[in-house]
């Protein structure tokens, strides 16, 4: 586990107060017309929230459960001149950077409040805990590694990479090659076993598109999967189309996936989507020498080439 995973609810509480002040200031001074953050939802879990007045900014929360990646909501605000405020932690900033590098939102219309991250907990798992254990985790910071969001386990970017203001101190970063243990397990299977493995997974998918809609790398104006002509993806939820969906979903973000795992987290039926994304990331590192494929680069790995790339014919 990365050293930065020293879950620190106290520090987050301080950041929350600073965040509310900062957002209220931005809204009252008119720097931004809306501020994207989280508020406490119905069951106590944070939900995405869009504060438009200094008064509303008081409802912003920052705690170990603010798992939701907010950057994607910027696409709802593409039109207009308004400046938008947004709070991001490390991975949230990668998502934001993804949209910026894909030129999907103008940087000058953003005011980014960054908060260095000490790790986030999986809201579903925390909600299922007995009261005492939940309190210990949320207030005392006592949490087993299994309680953290999956993405925290491989995080090497806890500090925001994009920010106009950073609230709180930087946390130590731990650089090192990304690990893909599950992919390695699957690679060891025989082709038939792998085909069977993935078929079971895709039979679970209900094709709700939550994984696509939450993905910060899926930002096309019109998704080809929604097109009728040509019909890239059949409407039938039969295994061949299910495979086509997941094949496309992962491959079309190859080299641009930020490994936030939001796709997997929002999946209601538990399709382990990152098994595909991770495979592509692992291969991008192996084939093209990109050491941190999840960190947005000025030119994405598949948007460039070198004469020295592996010889395709020899690959057979």
């Amino acid at each position: 586990m990365p050293k930065s995973l020293a879950l620190d609810p106290k520090k987050m509480k301080e950041a929350e107060a600073a965040l509310r002040t900062q957002a209220a200031k931005l809204l009252s001074e008119g720097t931004v017309t809306v501020f994207l953050g989280h508020e406490e939802g119905w069951d106590g879990l944070p939900v995405p929230f869009f504060a438009t007045t200094p008064e509303e900014a008081k409802r912003l929360v920052w705690n170990p459960l603010v798992a939701f990646n907010l950057a994607k909501y910027l696409l709802d605000r593409l039109t207009g001149e308004e400046k938008v405020g947004i709070v991001v932690n490390g991975c949230g900033s990668l998502a934001l950077d993804r949209l910026l590098k894909d030129r999907r939102f103008p940087r000058e219309r953003l005011f980014v409040v960054g908060i260095p991250c000490t790790g986030l907990l999986d809201p579903d798992k925390v909600l299922a805990l007995p009261d005492e254990a939940r309190q210990a985790a949320l207030e005392g910071g006592k949490a087993e590694p299994g309680l953290f969001l999956k993405r925290c386990g491989w995080c090497d970017a806890p500090n925001p990479v994009v920010a106009d203001v950073v609230l709180g101190e930087k946390v130590p970063e731990e650089a090192g090659p990304q690990q893909y243990p599950r992919v390695e397990e699957i690679e060891k299977m025989s082709p038939a076993e792998r085909a069977a493995h993935f078929k079971t997974l895709y039979e679970k998918c209900i094709r709700c598109f939550a994984c696509r809609n939450v993905c910060p790398a899926c930002s096309c104006r019109e998704c080809s999967l929604d097109q009728w002509e040509p019909l890239w993806l059949g409407k039938a939820t039969v295994p061949s189309e299910q495979l086509m969906y997941h094949f496309i979903r992962a491959f079309d973000v190859a080299g641009r996936c930020i490994r936030c795992g939001e796709c997997e987290r929002v999946c209601s039926v538990g399709v382990p989507l990152m098994e595909l994304n991770d495979k592509l990331m692992k291969d991008i590192t192996e084939l093209f020498g990109v050491q941190r494929p999840h960190v947005p680069a000025d030119v994405e790995p598949l948007g460039q080439w070198t004469e020295g790339d592996a010889d395709l014919e020899a690959a057979h």
Partner: peptide, 27 residues
């Protein structure tokens, strides 16, 4: 206000026992 955080996904609709809308297509 309430819709601003909607993801436009089908999770609610597809898990709902009373949502019944369908489309028709040929293959």
């Amino acid at each position: 206000k309430v819709s601003s955080r909607c993801l436009s996904c089908a999770t609610c609709t597809f898990v709902c026992p009373t949502c019944y809308c369908f489309g028709v297509a040929d293959t």
